[in-house]
Design a protein around this nucleic acid. Structure first.
Lengths: 95, 95
DNA sequence: TCGTAATTTAGCGAATTAACGAAATATAGG
DNA sequence: CCTATATTTCGTTAATTCGCTAAATTACGA
């Protein structure tokens, strides 16, 4: 869980995820659209992979990344948990 | 947004948020329930405050922390955004 | 005013992160 | 086999994070 939030805390990585929401991309195609060195991106890919936020398929020399939505769903659930059935606001006036 | 995910990426801070979900607590009361030095907790409070995830009320020498759910709702929305209307899986078989 | 309780600030060390460029690896195709 | 392409690994550097202890701050109450 920490891994996922940590992964989501980088704007570059969120940008990658937003790209992958539209369609699958290879590492190179993503590099064309994000202005950091490919080696740096490769590091970001690793973080996303470790957090299970993306899944890869290797075909020849090309690696295609796609979004793994199930982990996002898990995080969403855990955050809903934080919001659902909130504390009884006994000291405050109820509307 | 990065701040919020960064804040959420620490187990200690998530533990604090979960406590605050139940009811408001003072810094000291939180310290009783989490096993790190008070000064360390104070640092965590700062992170949570900067991310606007908590709100404080000072009363005498005691500072009471409470959850600010609106930021959590924003994050939730942005994550739903990542899941909603996913890419057309043109290369995959539709069920 | 003095002492005490609650909380924060300051300073430090170890570990992690993010960026880069250069070099390495792997695969496809001639 | 050789070369071009795609991607990763490595070494470096700068910045950030997280934990601690010790000291400072703030407010209360005797």
């Amino acid at each position: 869980m920490s891994d996922v939030f940590q992964a989501l805390s980088s704007p570059v990585r969120r940008q990658i995820l937003h790209l992958l929401k539209q369609k699958d991309y290879s590492a190179g195609e993503i590099a064309e659209q994000i202005d950091v060195a490919k080696s740096t991106l490769s590091g970001h890919f690793n973080v996303l992979k470790s957090a299970n936020l993306v899944v890869t398929v290797k075909e020849g020399t090309t690696i295609t990344y796609s979004l793994n939505t199930s982990v996002l769903e898990d995080v969403l659930t855990s955050m809903l948990n934080l919001l659902d059935s909130p504390k009884t606001e006994s000291t405050k006036e109820q509307p």
